[in-house]
């Protein structure tokens, strides 16, 4: 009998981080399966412990990042996603997945828009872990580093909201050097339940220590921070949680 937590990765035309994200999930102990979106039905969603929206350019992102994928999900799968969340499922969006979750309104209100200089930015970003006991972040230290790669990653929201997300502990990750001019330096958000989690940085790209740009990086002898990110949620779902039953996660 399969005991590993089961994650499915939704693959839209243009999703392109699915393979390495599945690899990261498997390495952390998940059973991970990549599902082309056309194959996804209610049962596949509801049969998973975690649904992952990986990075990429869903349907090209030509209208705005994540818009068409958002509409396609809403047309067919809204009800099953709702049931999935009611039953305690976890929903993770990375980069383009985060953009899709924002457009779906499953995370605190705001938007991810083009950078002021109009460019794509592929670089590493230092991040503050603002929720060190969160199921996704509890194995990570207060400050980590992950790669970012996006053109539309600047978090904006109506006046005052971004700051309130930081105060209320909904902003899970913030940039240390605000690489893309996000309001309140927000790099990742969670919803009130803590089970919808979106982030611009790519934890799957820092699974192994050797993926760091500095050969003398001293953070960990074998693994990158991304490994501990996926390991955190794996252990939570596998019932290995050190602090079981956490429902909300606030800034400590």
């Amino acid at each position: 009998m399969e005991k590993r937590p089961y994650a499915i990765l939704l693959k839209f035309p243009g999703t392109n981080c699915d393979v390495e994200t599945a690899r990261a999930l498997e390495t952390a102990g998940f059973r991970a399966e990549i599902m082309p979106f056309r194959q996804v039905v209610s049962e596949t969603i509801e049969g998973a412990n975690m649904v992952v929206l990986p990075g990429g350019f869903s349907y090209g992102d030509y209208i705005m990042a994540g818009r068409l994928a958002q509409l396609k999900i809403e047309h067919g799968l809204s009800a099953s996603l709702e049931r999935f969340m009611e039953n305690g499922g976890y929903l993770l969006g990375i980069c383009n997945g985060f953009q899709i979750l924002m457009r779906m309104g499953l995370l605190p209100a705001g938007s991810l828009i083009a950078h002021p200089d109009g460019r794509f930015a592929c670089r590493w970003a230092r991040l503050r872990n603002r929720c060190p006991s969160h199921p996704f972040l509890r194995f990570l230290p207060d400050e980590i580093e992950l790669p970012v790669a996006h053109a539309e990653g600047r978090f904006v929201a109506a006046e005052g909201l971004a700051e309130s997300y930081v105060e209320r502990g909904l902003a899970t990750l913030t940039y240390q050097d605000n690489v893309n001019h996000s309001f309140a330096s927000i790099a990742g958000l969670q919803d009130e339940t803590g089970r919808v989690f979106g982030m611009m940085p790519h934890p799957e790209r820092f699974l192994y220590r050797s993926q760091h740009y500095d050969p003398d990086w001293v953070g960990d002898p074998d693994w990158g921070w991304g490994y501990y990110f996926f390991k955190s949620i794996h252990d939570e779902l596998a019932g290995l949680s050190r602090e079981p039953g956490l429902k909300t996660h606030t800034n400590e």
């Binding site: 790209r205 993926q211 740009y213």
Partner: peptide, 23 residues
């Protein structure tokens, strides 16, 4: 120019076009 290109997708780029302690 290098930053305009996603040189890390696929998660396999070990010898990066920009590296060293400051990346």
């Amino acid at each position: 120019i290098i930053r305009e290109y996603d040189h890390e997708v696929q998660g396999n780029t070990l010898g990066k076009p920009l590296a060293g302690p400051g990346g």
